[in-house]
C-alpha cells in the first residue's frame, strides 16, 4: 500500500514536471524562461535542505555552500573541458565530497547540534570571503579565472552531449532543470521509503535508540548529508547555466533564504519546501517592483505572519484543510 503510494507520488511528480517542461517554454518569453529556471534551481536547493533538515534532522546553515561549490565546479570544469557534458559529474562530485568531508568532521567529531550550525555557517562565510578575494589574474584554474566578486560571467552553458558546438538553448536548460527537480523529488521519495531512509528518519527521532538497535548513526547522517550536498550542487549547476556563478551563491542571504523556504513550506515535508521556494521567490520579486517600499520589509512581514499562522508549514496545513473538507 504505502509503497504503491510512494510510487504514485513519484510518478505524479515526474508527470507534473513533464507538463511544466512542455508547456511553459511555449508561453513564456525568453527572460521569463530564464527566470523560471532560476526558480526551479532554487526549489531544488530548498528540496536538498528539506531532505537534510526535515528528515536527517541536521539543521545546516550552509546549504548555499554546496550550491556555490556546484556552480563553481561546473563553471571551472566547463571552461577547461572541450565538452561541457563532462563538467556535470564534477559539478555533482565536488559538493558531495565537500559535504562528506564536512559531515565527517561534524558527525565523527561528536560536534553538538548548536556547533554544527555554527560550523556550517562559518564554512559558508569562509568560502564566500575566499571566492570574493580571487579577483587577481593569478587566481585561475586552468582556463578559468575565478574572477573574485565579479564571478565567472563567461561560464559556458551545457552543450548537446557529444556535440560541443551546439550549446543548449535556455528553453532546453529549463526543461533539464524541471526534469532534475522532478527527478530529485522522486528520488527523495524513494530514498525515504527505503530501509536506509527509514533508518535516517528513525535517527532523527532518537539517535540513542537507533544506535542501540545496531544502526551506525554517524554513517547514516554522513550519507544523507552528502546526498543533500549533491542535490544542492546540482541546483548550483543549473543556476550557473541560466545566470552565471558569483560569490553571492555562497552568501548568507542564500543560506538564510533556503531555511526560510523550508520552514514556510513545512519541515519534514518535501513538496512544501518546493512550493515555499517558488512562492517566496515570486513574492520577493514582486515586492522588488513596488515603489517606495523595501522588499525585505514585506518579506519579513510575510514570514512573521506565516510562522505565526501556519507554524507547521504550508504542506501539513494544507493537507489538514483538505482532509477536513473531505467527508
Amino acid at each position: 500500500m504505502e509503497d504503491r503510494r510512494t510510487l504514485l507520488q513519484a510518478v505524479l511528480a515526474l508527470l507534473a514536471g513533464g507538463v511544466a517542461a512542455w508547456w511553459l517554454p511555449q508561453v513564456l518569453e525568453l527572460f521569463a524562461i530564464i527566470n523560471a529556471t532560476v526558480y526551479v534551481a532554487m526549489a531544488l536547493l530548498a528540496l536538498s535542505l528539506a531532505l537534510v533538515w526535515g528528515f536527517g534532522g541536521i539543521l545546516c546553515f550552509g546549504q548555499a555552500a554546496f550550491f556555490g561549490l556546484g556552480g563553481y565546479a561546473y563553471a571551472v570544469a566547463a571552461l577547461n573541458l572541450p565538452d561541457t557534458t563532462y563538467a556535470i559529474p564534477i559539478a555533482l562530485g565536488v559538493p558531495m565530497l565537500a559535504a562528506a568531508a564536512l559531515g565527517y568532521v561534524m558527525f565523527y567529531g561528536k560536534v553538538s547540534d548548536v556547533y554544527m550550525g555554527v560550523i556550517t555557517l562559518t564554512v559558508t562565510l569562509i568560502l564566500f570571503n575566499f571566492i570574493n578575494s580571487t579577483a587577481g589574474e593569478e587566481w585561475r584554474i586552468g582556463a578559468a579565472p575565478l574572477g573574485g566578486f565579479n564571478g565567472i560571467p563567461s561560464t559556458p552553458p551545457l552543450n548537446m552531449p557529444g556535440d560541443p558546438g551546439t550549446a543548449l538553448t535556455p528553453e532546453q536548460i529549463f526543461v533539464i532543470a524541471v526534469a532534475c527537480l522532478a527527478g530529485c523529488y522522486a528520488a527523495c521519495k524513494l530514498i525515504l521509503r527505503s530501509h536506509f531512509g527509514r533508518v535516517v528518519t528513525a535517527i532523527r527521532e532518537n539517535e540513542l535508540r537507533a544506535a542501540l538497535l545496531g544502526y551506525n548513526v554517524r554513517l547514516h547522517k554522513l550519507a544523507i548529508f552528502a546526498i543533500g550536498g549533491l542535490m544542492a550542487g546540482l541546483a548550483g549547476m543549473l543556476f550557473a547555466n541560466c545566470v552565471f556563478v558569483s560569490p553571492t551563491m555562497f552568501s548568507l542571504a542564500y543560506s538564510g533564504q533556503v531555511i526560510i523556504w523550508v520552514m514556510v513550506g513545512g519541515v519534514g515535508t518535501l513538496l512544501g519546501p518546493i512550493i515555499g521556494a517558488m512562492l517566496l521567490q515570486a513574492l520577493t520579486a514582486w515586492a522588488g517592483t513596488l515603489p517606495e517600499v523595501n522588499p525585505n520589509l514585506i518579506l519579513g512581514l510575510v514570514l512573521v505572519v506565516a510562522v505565526l499562522a501556519i507554524p507547521r508549514g504550508l504542506q501539513p496545513t494544507m493537507a489538514t484543510l483538505l482532509r477536513r473538507r473531505a467527508p
Binding site: 532523527r204 527521532e205 544506535a211 542501540l212 538497535l213 545496531g214
Partner: peptide, 29 residues
C-alpha cells in the same frame, strides 16, 4: 566499542527511561 557495534554482537537493552521513536508508529519502530 561503539553502541551500534555492541548491539550487533547480540545485546539488546531496554533503558530505564523509555527510549523510543516517538514520531513513528509502534509497528514501524
Amino acid at each position: 566499542l561503539e553502541p551500534h557495534a555492541i548491539a550487533r554482537l547480540g545485546i539488546g537493552i531496554k533503558t530505564q527511561v523509555p527510549s523510543l521513536f516517538d514520531g513513528l508508529t509502534a509497528i514501524e519502530g
